[in-house]
Amino acid sequence: MREVIEGRVWCVDDELDTDQLIAGKYLTIIDPAELRKHVLENVDPRFSKEAKAGDILVAGENMGCGSSREHAPAALKAIPLGAVVANSFARIFFRNSINLGMPAIEAAGVRAIFRPGDTCRILMREGRVVNVTTGKEVSFPPLPAHLLDLLEQGGLVEKVRKELKRTEARP
């Protein structure tokens, strides 16, 4: 995990639910590269075509509410987005993002300081989100140590793999 994440901003609004992130008709798709083609297609059709590696999605309240579908963060991770930042997250979306190794940052008031195309800089350990374009910034409580550790290891798959190795190695 990088300590400082910087990228171009895309914006979505409050209560963006998982049905809008990835519609039910795509739920049989497993390949994240296929999923990314349909992410947000009803909300902002340009997103799936134009979003580039390292871009940052800035969302409002209750980002990712709705179902448990990991398709939603998986499709965003496939871009791959540098991070998702929101005023607040729905629980499962937040967990899924971190478990996939994609930084999810909850920073109250963050949506209001960004417009699409701005440059966003996230200082993970200091807990600051800066709009490089305008100079405005908001702070956030840095992620707890075990989540930073999870991101550092690249997500849950890696973490569990190492843990299983350790238990096997034990006599």
Partner: peptide, 12 residues
């Protein structure tokens, strides 16, 4: 929970 997390539960 999501499926990656489910995989971790199955494993551990």
């Amino acid at each position: 929970i999501g499926p990656t997390e489910y995989a971790a539960v199955l494993a551990l």
